[in-house]
């Protein structure tokens, strides 16, 4: 995998962090797919994106295991403006405690309404990527703060409990 200067992100940029207004485009893409392509297109899009666009990262996770998962998410959130995140490695798992979600924070400070299912994208995308790496993933919370867990053994990942992911609101 080609990597940036941090050694774990797959792509390099000339800026240390992304532009927060890009979250508007991500949210608008979700709204467009959910509204104009009913019947699971949005979920298909995220799963395919997870498998294909993120293939270099997934391969690195598969080859280097949970330490790479932890390093990736530290570097990832370090490049996202306004995020407050703690990443911890435990026995057979990595916990990502998103204290302040940079996207939800930006929507709120700018008065832009997120799609209600915005937070589900992290679960669908994360699970597709974890599967590709031979791992499991779960998410609880949402609407501004949440917890992602990556499991070395995919069978340890709990099934989603209805209502465990909050609807996103302004």
């Amino acid at each position: 995998m080609k990597r940036d200067s941090s050694g774990v992100l797959p792509y390099t940029d000339s800026k240390p962090q992304g532009a927060a207004d890009f979250y508007f485009a991500i949210n608008a893409t979700f709204r467009f797919l959910l509204d104009s392509q009913p019947g699971g297109a949005w979920e298909d899009y995220l799963e395919q994106l997870g498998r294909e666009y993120f293939a270099p990262v997934n391969s690195a996770w598969k080859e280097e295991g949970l330490p790479m998962v932890a390093e990736y998410w530290r570097a990832f959130f370090g490049a996202e403006p306004g995020s407050e995140v703690v990443v911890e490695e435990g026995e057979g798992r990595v916990e990502i405690d998103v204290k302040v979600c940079p996207a939800i924070r930006h929507f709120r400070t700018q008065g832009r309404c997120p799609v209600s299912r915005y937070c589900e994208h992290c679960e669908i995308l994360g699970q597709a990527r974890a599967r590709a790496a031979g791992m499991g993933m779960s998410l609880v919370g949402g609407n501004g703060s949440c917890r992602h867990t990556y499991f070395e053994d995919p069978d340890e990942a709990p099934a989603r409990v209805p209502g465990s992911i909050c609807e996103a609101t302004l």
Binding site: Q48, E52, A79
Partner: peptide
């Protein structure tokens, strides 16, 4: 999570996905 730092990368990937679909 889809991030802003590599937004142009997944944005461009999305064009092909949409073009293939519709």
């Amino acid at each position: 999570m889809l991030g802003s730092y590599d937004f142009c990368g997944h944005y461009e990937w999305t064009f092909t996905w949409l073009n293939n679909r519709g």
